[in-house]
Nucleic acid binder design. Sequence first.
DNA 1: TGGGAAGTGATA
DNA 2: ATGGTATCACTTCCCA
Length: 849
Amino acid sequence: MQTIQILDANYKYNEKRNPVIQLFGKLSDGTNITKKITNFKHYFYVGINNEIDLDEIKIELVNMGVEVEEVQRYEPIGYQTSKKLMLKVTAIDPKEVRSLRERVKKINGIEEVYETDILFRNRFLIDKNLGGMKWAEVPDKEEFSESEIKSLEIKKNVPLRLMSIDIECLPKQNGAMPTLSEDPIILTSLAFSEAYNETTNLVLVGKLTSQSSENTLSFANESELLENLMLIIEDYDPDIIVGYNSNEFDFPYIETRTKKLGIRASIGRDGSSLYTKKIVLNTNVMVTGRVIIDLLHILRSSNEDKYKFKSYTLKNVAKKLLKLKKLDVDTKEMRGLWENEGDGLKNFIEYSRRDAIITLDLLLEMKLVERYTEMAKASGSLLQDIANGGQSGMIENLLLRRFREHDRVVPPKPDSETSDERFDDSESLKGGAVLDPEKGLVEDVIILDYKSLYPTLMMAYNICYSTIANSPEDEFERVKAPMGGGEFVKTETLKGIVPEILEELLDKRIKIKKQMKLATGTQKELLDAEQYAIKILLNSFYGYSGYQRARLYDLRIANAVTSFGRENIKKTTDLINRMEKIDEYSFRVIYSDTDSVFIKVISKENKISLEKAEKLGDIIGKEITKNLPEPMELVYETFARRGILLAKKRYAMWIFDKTREGYEDKLKIKGIETVRRDWCNLTSNTLKSCLNMILKEGEVAKAIALAKEKVDKLQNFNLTKDSSLLEDLVITKRYTKGAKAYKNKQPHIQLVERMKERGDTPPSIGDRVPYIIIRGKSGGKRQKDLFVNRAENPNYIIKHGIQIDTEYYINKQLLPPLLRIFSTLNSAAPTGAAEFVVKDKKQRTLEDW
DNA sequence: TGGGAAGTGATA
DNA sequence: ATGGTATCACTTCCCA
């Protein structure tokens, strides 16, 4: 017997054209191993009309060459007291299932089909309780039957072998984008996390040069470079290959070049080739038995604040995450460097090497492998599916497993027509409630929030597909969502499948968090990855139920969650407002959003201490929690000594968090321009400094002086003297779709169009476009001078010495956000702020004249 | 020219 | 391809 951790799975036909599952796994010593399972068959379910003769239906099915079995199953949606008779249809060829489904649907008496679009490898993993990065016990032999494999619960993970890749190509025209069909790959850099033959990186050079050394291999031409690249990959045998924009550039490029040169890119663990597939905007890269990760793709789609950047170039991301400066080569210099035999080529090689090293370092720094491993283990999805992104896949995997255990079938994914219908009435899903804040300066605010509100609501009210009461005349007791949403039977009648999953996940997360407090080093990191994976899953069930492309889309569920949530936060607010004084303190809710409440502490005698604030927060939280169904919980989050509430979802708070060394203060800024990427740094930085002065130091006059200083500096701005300030004027916005798809003009889109006309390399869809607003032609027609037409690329501005529209930066970038802050202070600091506002108005009128 | 609607991006 | 809604702010567009 052997124990393996599963890295990847697929299927392939044997010589008898029977499907064979291939499992790509690792032994605990790190050895890679492939296992083949021979007798597993694909199947799906059909729901039948009881009035049609069952035998007739069965005969028609059997005539299609499938096996048919009578089974008892629950339907996917709704509380049911008994199972229904269904048919399990087993196909011999997994590829047939799709066409079979269409033929089966036409049979008279077959009303529904279920689980017709589960990938064969997933069907196998689900049924055998196996999954990505999970462990299995298997026979020593290579090929065996499905009954010989057993799933194991093992916490530890085999270390994976990681490799990064980066290619450089030589375009015909200096500075142009390389063309697949014509321009060769000249350099390929690799970095290895488990050393390869005692080296951690390699550069393959596509021409013979004296520059070759131990870590630099030189080859006669591109063909030899690529042939050797394939050999190195096979030899090193990485589990994960990571690149930066590699799904859109490096891999498709390698695929095309190898095809053109007649080289087999057979880097799959079963000897299959690298394979890329373009899907609308993105490209999927597949290498059997290995996991391909594109870091750019992952960073761009990340929701985490720490991975949000104004620019996603490898250079900027490395600067921010690794605090590194990346060597940079201007694409226009590439040909010169390449043709240079001395230092030029050497620098080019080192630049390329460094890209590969940085990419690998980023992967390690982000702890991505650890996170993805735990997400795979918690959901059962394969590592590659996790890396490709999407929470719906993980949720579906979990639901398929649990529904199966409860003898409940799952519907197929909606076709495009069905999801269009869903889209049409999608307005019917309402979200959380946001209370209009008491705007202006506030002091002494306790902030409380609900821990995992949506998941705990689903548990508290037994909200699930399996507990929806679907017929009004049913007699069992049930709870109806307060404002829209379905009715659900109580836990005593039937505990829902989703609440059951959530409960297990929540318990597990609490346990892990406890263990984390005692753990250190890698042990702690592993636990952190595990709790993070669970957190993602916990929070995804609600979104999934309201997601139009979900198998189990049900607005009665999604609406019930938000409606219970809205009712709950309103009740919470009312209860706190009506609460009796505690000691000499009374309370008023001044803001709330979905799951949080901001409570102003009112006291005539004493300013509240930080310790007392936390104590009161705890008391209020417990007081509210005690009247709530389990496991809902309102907890103390933080305390703000002072803050400014500007509008819903826009505020700045000076908060105090308890640490081991005492209290740590910082600004918690939400929604306002300091945290927005579509404002220039000059605005964000000035605003942040002003907020610091006002909130922390109470120095309004100082803040106003700073604002004035910045305005003055801009007024006297001179590009040739002061080009360092230019960087602070850059605004970035995402280029989201093709220019023709925009109904209104926007500065960054106009710039992209202009860059195309000029023949500059334009940003691609999805990129953030940096721009600066330049001065218009005075006396020109107003229409032509619209600021949308005056966005320009920063490099272009420097190169051509173009004048900046300093007025725009003063009146549209600096002043509005600053004035919004100052004007809220009018009552608190009337003199300073008022003076500033008046002066500004004067200035503006003067300029206008 | 003023004011509101609509489009867009970004955030909570 | 693919978790959700609420909200803000800016800009252009369009009508009176």
